[in-house]
Write a protein that binds this DNA or RNA. Structure first.
Length: 212
DNA sequence: GACCAGGCACATC
DNA sequence: GATGTGCATGGT
């Protein structure tokens, strides 16, 4: 499995090159994006992010003081906006209570402990927690999402009903414990899924992983 | 107009 | 512990 994972990475990297993830201007934008993208097309998330920026609301203190109803109206385009506004508020409450709204402070927390704390916040599940850890705070943890599972199950590397922790283990046991690597690998899988695996059979011969 | 998209919590069996 | 359901908008 180790060789296979390394080979897949090499193929994807030579096909697509570096992906420069997460697509955001700063860490706080990554965190908000991680909530907004739950069960939602990224295009709709971008609109919501743009709206927040337009209102200069994409800043911890500003959002913390804003009502859920107001946040909800600004992020409407991302879908599930009422629930997402509540989730963002839950996170901000936690963020200000424990770390005074300071990303530097939160980042100093041990990864294992921070992951547990994040998962205890209502609205943060494994993918959102890991996206925050890896893409906002540069912690070495592998993010598993629908794209990751789709690519790997279609290429016969996991069962399509494999759980989050199991898939994450496959990556984390077999790759160097390196945030940059986890970042690039996951981003490349998303790129592949968006370009090929959504509509094409992996055995078509066009997909760069053909033969895996 | 149907179907889908980078989850999560909660109810029910 | 597995399975089902609500949450909702905008693109294809």
């Amino acid at each position: 499995m180790r060789r296979k994972l390394q080979d897949i990475f090499r193929r994807l990297y030579s096909e697509f090159g570096p992906q420069h993830w997460w697509p955001a201007e700063d860490s706080f934008e990554v965190i908000i994006g991680a909530f907004l993208t739950q069960g939602t097309n990224w295009l709709n998330v971008e609109k919501a992010i743009a709206r927040l920026k337009e209102k200069k609301a994409l800043e911890p203190g500003k959002l913390f003081r804003m009502s859920s109803a107001k946040i909800s109206s600004l992020i409407k385009s991302s879908g599930y906006h009422n629930i997402k506004a509540a989730r963002i508020k839950e996170f901000l409450k936690f963020f200000f209570e424990i770390y005074q709204g300071d990303l530097g402070k939160m980042s100093k927390e041990k990864m294992r402990k921070l992951r547990k704390l994040l998962l205890s916040v209502k609205g943060i599940g494994p993918e959102t927690a890991d996206s925050i850890l890896l893409y906002a705070l540069n912690k070495p943890v592998f993010v598993v999402d629908a794209y990751t599972k789709r690519v790997f199950s279609r290429h016969g590397l996991i069962n399509d009903d494999a759980g989050y922790a199991h898939v994450q283990d496959i990556f984390m046991r077999n790759l160097k414990n390196n945030a940059k690597m986890f970042n690039e690998y996951h981003a490349l899988l998303v790129r592949l899924a968006k370009d090929y695996c959504r509509k094409l059979d992996p055995k078509c011969g066009i997909c760069p992983l053909h033969g895996q």
